[in-house]
Design a protein around this nucleic acid. Sequence first.
RNA 1: GGUGGGGUGGCUGAGUCCGGUCGAAGGCGCCGCACUCGAAAUGCGGUAUGCCCGAAAGGGUAUCGUGGGUUCGAAUCCCACCCCCACCGCCA
Length: 420
Amino acid sequence: MLDINLIREHVDAVKEGVAKKGVDSKIVDKLLRRDEVWREKAKALDDLKAEQNEVTKEIAKKHTKGALSRARLLKQQITKLSDEETHLKQQRDVLLEKLPNIPFDDVPVGKNDKDNVELRQVGKQPEFDFKPKDYLTVAEQLGIIDVKRAAVVAGSRFGYLLGGAARLEFALIQFAIETITAEGFIPVVPPVMIRPEIMRRMGKGTFIDDHDAFRIDEDDLYLVGSSEHTIGPLHIDETLREKDLPRRYVGFSTCFRREAGSYGRDTRGILRVHQFDKVEMFSFVHPEKSEEEHQFLLAIQECLMQKLELPYRVVEVCTGDMTWSDARQYDIETWLPSEKQYRETHSCSNTTDFQARGIRARFIQEGMNKPQYMHTLNATGFAIGRTIVAIIENYQTKQGTVRVPPVLQSWTGSKEIDVI
RNA sequence: GGUGGGGUGGCUGAGUCCGGUCGAAGGCGCCGCACUCGAAAUGCGGUAUGCCCGAAAGGGUAUCGUGGGUUCGAAUCCCACCCCCACCGCCA
């Protein structure tokens, strides 16, 4: 959620910001008009209540002469005004929820992923003395990914990871958790179901509204699309002390996404599925440290990729392609030889105080008594499925086998992926 | 699913039977001051948040799980819901 005071005081900047994100800036004008009307009404209501409190005190002191009839009248007026005030506030807040976080000034302006800016390419793209196959062809030959049987059991966009692919998953998890916890992150296995109210407070209302989240109807719960959704609210309504910051978590969870609106895209294989596992970093930091933390998270992501020896590139995501709650976002895209292009495997987001305001995650600065909002950031450790895809493609051999990246070999216990 | 107990400020915990002087005792923690070479201990003082008005000082208002009701007035009474804890049952 955006700060209403920021909107009031910096109308033009906010309008410009939301427009860059592809949101109609007229909403801001509409919001401010509602806000104005609401404030007048709220003031009138407060004044009436103040009068009521006075009258009430008189009655308590037995000065009931005329007071009781005045009190009855006040009560009526207050009831009426109060309904109006509630209604106006609601209208304002609905509009407030329709505004995304404002991108930083220096974020590249653009419409979609084509306008993202490549920052660097890292790692050598593998050269093959044969025509590299796509991961699914290789994996199906080895019997380690099975989407056909998964379709029978659960429908499209699911997959079985078998044998070596499953081992690869566990190896990646252990490798990531070990590396990231060494940096002081607290490992966490969070709930994968979440209440809608919490999801909205995390600034992820669109995940529900766009029908991208799976709903457990009977219990009014949603399946998370990322452990970010339930790690963030770990400190909901809490006020930490400055010395507790930064607070860093590395979570592991399954993620569920309906992938609504992506019909026909990546329908083959496990690149875009309803269910995948992910290691995720999440930081709560001092507001002045969030840009620094953002770089730190990105550095960890790159370190993991370099140790895996996968070629990747880092892009800064443009305003139009950014996530709703982000002020700045980087993506890491990994090279897929069969497609001869980089495909998104990681994202790294600074949500500034946008999520923190929603979940009221605050801290008290040393020597002050007024709490302020922290900044929160989240970054992919590994999206396991997509990383497995990248490994299969980049580490395939002429014989149709797949080598295990050296750094993972101690976890898989073999240099080649086990076949079924 | 069953039975019982409970949700009060940063934490703990009184108040709820018998509605008004209760934004709410006490304790802990935290901040300041005093004492001290310094620290501990001790003493004194301070210490919730949101919203609105105000340049500020300050003022108003709301908040005792949530929503509704009764009332001139609700932490306190009534109704519904949510959540937590303990034990039992079931279960990976």
